[in-house]
Nucleic acid binder design. Structure first.
Lengths: 190, 190
DNA sequence: TCGTAATTTCAGTAATTACAGAAATGACAG
DNA sequence: CTGTCATTTCTGTAATTACTGAAATTACGA
């Protein structure tokens, strides 16, 4: 590996993390390298920078393309493929969220739905279905929220994040007023 | 494997998904089994239900405990360990979020911070640092939001999720009013 | 303090996944 | 066409990870 020390730390870290993210070391390293490169890189440059085989680079880039995490660019009068990551980190976040949902959530959701359609044949199955139904409900609530906020443009999304706690405080205030109203009325009744 | 068909589907699915979630098949299967079981199970029961070795069960339970995903229970006059998952799916979600953050986000955040402390020795490093800084900023914003909303009790969290889009519409309305005011003033000026 | 049951650790093996190098394919210029 | 360069696919091997069965440890009752 032949990289400036500061970049190498970053690349190596992404490699190590790779396994925890469900991708492998090489894929993680290539992504990190592309992310910090000022210019798009071609396969040969990646081979030199990371010291890995040409075929490994080819397959890893394939993987990154399947995740929609890299952009393919072409330079005039050059047949080679050059790769970058999107400039906008928020766009990267969106892609990541979408792809992980597709791979890690949607399949479970559809399996749950399928199982919940069936008639339980025993008390054990009935209880299991009830549990699965709870899980299904939670996941649906989360994905509904996600589908909702992912529509937001970046500014509004950022605002929503920054707001986070404040929305909460607003809700608490509302609750307080409502419950005050309720307890007053219930006092009057009781 | 010796389970009612409906439960078996669920367990097998969690096993298959296991790899995508960064845990292994057995761990996924055991978790799924405990999740749908009406009563806590001991190791031997898991061995019988899933048809895997006793030692494998022991190591997988260890892994699940490291993730705080299972509860250890003891019955009176019985030395064996019995395991369950929490009843409340929201609690499970919280644990999952916390553990994944700890494993998948925090290490990256600290590596980024460390690298950003250093003096870039070249233009390439300077640019790389700028990119890392963008990433760091985004992750910080996300984790701040997370630290914020994770404090909420479940009712309020659920409300926040359901609200999702509506908060947005509120923001949009506010934006419209503000920008109307601005454009009016700028028209007056221009 | 011995014996027994439960659990954990360990060492070897099986299974899976990652990778390199070679061969094949594709794309284009002349 | 043919030759060249870029990329992909394929096959075998290396490395890693998952798993088993045996041995060791722990916990506790008699």
């Amino acid at each position: 590996m032949n990289l400036p020390p500061l970049i190498q730390s970053f690349v190596l870290h992404f490699g190590e993390m790779g396994s925890r993210w469900g991708i492998n070391r090489t894929v993680g390293q290539i992504y990190a390298l592309l992310y910090v490169s000022p210019e798009p890189l071609n396969a040969e440059q990646i081979v030199e920078a990371l010291g890995i085989s040409r075929s490994n680079v080819s397959m890893s880039l394939r993987e990154l393309q399947a995740w929609n995490l890299v952009l393919l660019k072409h330079l005039p009068d050059d047949r080679r493929d050059f790769f970058t990551t999107p400039d906008d980190v928020w766009q990267i976040l969106r892609t990541l969220a979408e792809e992980r949902k597709k791979r890690e959530v949607d399949p479970t959701l559809s399996v749950l739905r399928e199982i919940l359609m069936q008639q339980p044949a025993s008390e054990a199955e009935r209880h299991a279905q009830a549990r699965m139904s709870e899980m299904h409900g939670l996941i649906e609530q989360l994905t509904t929220w996600y589908e909702d906020v992912k529509q937001l443009d970046t500014d509004r999304l950022a605002t929503l994040l920054t707001l986070g706690a404040k929305v909460t405080r607003l809700l608490e205030a509302k609750d307080k007023i409502v419950s005050l109203g309720r307890s007053k009325r219930s006092t009057e009744k009781g």
